[in-house]
Amino acid sequence: MTKHFLAGAALSALLITPAVAQDAGTVLATVNGQDITLGHVIAATAALPEQYQALPNDMLLQGILEQLIQQEVVASMARDELSGAMRIGLENEERAYIAAMALDAVAMADIPAEELQAEYDAQYGNVEPVTEYNASHILVETEEEAQALIEELEGGADFAALAQEHSTGPSGPNGGQLGWFTAGMMVPPFEEAVFALEVGEVSPPVQTRFGWHVVILNDTRDQAAPALEEVQDQLIEGLRQARVDSYLEEMSAAAAIERPEMELDPALIRDLGLLDN
């Protein structure tokens, strides 16, 4: 629809004379006996991509109406001679549109505050705080190098300065700082060493597949469950999806669905020639 939209707007010089009462049934044009109404323009406007929604209303009105007129000029000539493919395509489009509107109405109905709170409580009410760790490390190739660094630290050397000078890891230029992490984010030997430390304490040499580490625990903190406001959008999205799933399950259970037993060659779904037979 958008391909010729702006061209249509530029071509049209149509001015709509206000009627005493204008509603969705107000006729804006008639093409070969087929009315194009304000309702048709409203529906087409709502379906425009976001980048077109910011256009001025007068441009939208003129452009969409012109496009609908052009479409009806073509459609009115072809409507009485629809091919089998066109008729089946229209049936699919109608089915999809009606279903989409019905599901949208189910999904987008208001979610009461108490329902949102209940969902938050169900997901986060019993979440235990998770401990986060902030550590720095110096990565070297051998245990001897690691032990020598520990001795320098015991003598008063600055950890960040040693990391910048000696660490072969990517965090070296940043003083070995690894930031905040929780259990499961680091390799097991490294985590075990960190978890055994007190804040400010330096570990003995720790070996991982990356080499030998000297680790200092900078700080710890508890990561509490997020506030309702932080997760509200994803909770609402989940509730809306749950509504749709429940509605589909309920409607399917109540529907009379019959599936004839037959052998069907799956390759037939690509045979466009069958549509016009």
Rank of each mutant, 00 (worst) to 15 (best):
G89L: 13
G89P: 10
A96N: 06
I98N: 02
A99R: 13
A100E: 12
M101R: 15
L103I: 14
A105N: 12
V106T: 09
V106E: 09
A107Y: 03
A109I: 02
A109Q: 04
I111H: 00
E114W: 11
E114R: 14
E114N: 15
E114H: 15
E114Q: 15
L116E: 08
Q117G: 15
E119W: 11
Y120E: 02
D121H: 03
A122W: 05
E128W: 09
E128N: 12
T131D: 08
S136C: 04
H137E: 12
L139N: 11
L139F: 13
L139Y: 12
L139M: 12
V140S: 06
E141H: 10
T142F: 13
E143W: 05
E144N: 05
A146C: 00
A146L: 00
Q147T: 06
A148F: 00
I150D: 00
I150G: 00
E152S: 07
L153F: 05
E154H: 07
A157S: 01
F159W: 04
F159A: 04
F159V: 08
A163F: 02
A163W: 05
Q164F: 09
E165L: 12
G169P: 11
S171C: 13
G172P: 09
G172L: 03
G175I: 05
Q177M: 12
L178H: 08
W180G: 02
